[in-house]
Amino acid sequence: MARRDYLLKRAAWSVLTILFVLILNFFLFRILPGDPTTSIAKDPRLDADTRAALAARFGLDKPLVLNVQGGGLFDSQLFAYVDRLAHGDLGVSFNYGRPVGEILGERIGNTVLLVLGGQLLAIILGVGLGLLAAWKNRTPLDTGAIIFSLTAWSLPTFWLGILLLIIGSTYFGLPTAGRQTVGMDYASVWAQAIDVGRHLLLPTLTFTIVLLGEYMLVMRSSVLEILSEDYILTAKAKGLSQGQILRHHALQNAMLPIVTLIALNLGFTVAGAIQVETVFSWPGVGSLIYEAVRRQDYPVLQGAFLVIAISVVAANLAADLVYGLLDPRIKSP
């Protein structure tokens, strides 16, 4: 019962956040200067009639939020925008001349592939190394782990990408751009998978290193705190060995903050994806954003931001669910 309440509350919260994102997105592109549609419709070189016609065409003549002058309360720019979104219409790209939704759809799979691999590796390594560092608290191993983590955290993602790109291509002959070799005919799906894998290697490695540092630090402090708890002393008094204590009493408890961190960190992951994809010309949403910035392709930018924000909110909800499963205290708060 209590768990259901908790989940319902978290779900309602996510919906609220998404609504907020929608509104933010709407206003960002209406209020800030720079949107070409708005600029054109206000261009002083055009005569008043043309401007009015353009404004009507883009719906800019309507009130921003609520229509109180008649024609229905919801006959406004905001609700027209929400209505278009509800129909999956994210606008048309200035650059490609195609629907933004379609372009995003083609690219999102590649980003997920990249982010998932990097995240997974970073979580496994970070949790393992963090546990080890905390266990060997204040030994040279621990100090080394901290220095490595802080350094990894301080690396600009794009710069690490560039360094790995230079090293990987010079010394290991790894491909540096794209998702697969251009113009290649594959003998089998297997051969294609290997080619994609080779292309994935450097971007994934970049991702892993950048995320690893923080996961390790958080896991370390989390384990350190737990190993100082009274129940660890109880477990020791019960005759359990160090390995058993770490496995049965420290790991699950220490994972709790990690779950929260992974979810909160997705924003940071997205930032990483933009940089990694840009450096390695990986055809995902991140490099799409980069191109959109360069070409002032606002509909793409707006659409990408929306999709990313919603994914992050959804991932946070998922993390809340996992947390609820891991921590029995959620059941009856």
Partner: peptide, 28 residues
């Protein structure tokens, strides 16, 4: 150390002060 582990709880056990935190919160 391993012989000592066999002594703990099996021959000498301990009731800690403040049982509040003496149990692991995420296990029954």
């Amino acid at each position: 150390e391993s012989d000592m582990r066999a002594v703990r709880w099996h021959r000498i056990s301990m009731i800690f002060q403040g049982a509040m935190n003496a149990f692991n919160p995420v296990r029954t």
